[in-house]
Amino acid sequence: MPIIRNEQFIQAPIDVCFDLARNVDIHTETTAETKEKAVGGVMQGLLEKGDTVTWEAIHFGIKQRLTAKVTHMEKPDMFVDIMVNGAFSSFTHTHQFKEEKGGTLMIDTFEYKSPFGPLGIIADKLFLEKYMTDFIISRAKELKIIAENVN
């Protein structure tokens, strides 16, 4: 099961970073490249514990849907969402926020299991793990830009 971990320092208060990371509208903005949008569950505003959201996006040229549920939340330090329906066999995305001098360290830990057994493991090694790593890093960089320009 691949585990992707990314750290992004943001020169903004922890509560700003936390709220931006769980904001459905901002998620859509930071994933424009894949045309991600909410099509079910909570479709705008801030996600809370117990909320679900269904995302529709284009990955690998294919329109896909994925439903995630927020299963854990400790404001403003962390929240966790898991896939309840979608292309992966499973995933858990832990979003952590740590106050540091001059800002916030945002840490994404994304653990997933590909479908299709051994074929999924091969896909991970050939392209999927890199694709997901690039996706998470790109979103973190976009969140950084937004957070550092909120006043």
Rank of each mutant, 00 (worst) to 15 (best):
N85P: 02
T34W: 05
F135P: 03
L128K: 07
N149W: 01
C17D: 07
L105H: 01
E48R: 10
H95G: 06
M132Q: 11
H93F: 02
I26K: 03
R65D: 05
F79Q: 02
F116K: 13
A38H: 00
G103A: 08
I4Y: 01
I3A: 14
T109G: 01
G50P: 09
H27K: 07
T71Q: 04
H59G: 07
R65N: 13
Y131M: 15
T94R: 13
F79N: 02
E29S: 12
Y131C: 06
A87I: 10
F116Q: 11
E7A: 00
I137S: 08
K98E: 15
M83I: 09
V39Q: 05
N151L: 10
V80E: 13
R139N: 05
F88Q: 05
S114K: 00
I82G: 01
I26F: 01
T34L: 07
G120M: 13
L105D: 00
A140V: 01
E29P: 02
T28A: 15
N149Y: 01
F116G: 06
V80N: 06
G117D: 14
V150H: 08
I145G: 07
I146R: 05
T28P: 01
G86L: 04
I137R: 10
F79I: 04
K49D: 04
T67C: 05
K35N: 12
V16T: 12
F60S: 13
G86Y: 08
E33I: 10
D25N: 06
S114D: 07
L126H: 05
V42F: 08
G40I: 04
T94G: 09
M78L: 11
E48K: 12
A87P: 14
E148M: 05
A140Y: 00
E48H: 11
T54P: 02
A68G: 11
G103I: 07
T133F: 08
T92E: 12
F60N: 12
G40H: 04
V16I: 14
G102A: 14
K125F: 14
I58T: 15
I136V: 15
S89N: 15
I3G: 08
I58E: 14
D25P: 04
K130Y: 09
I4A: 06
P2D: 12
G86V: 07
N23C: 09
Q96T: 14
D25A: 02
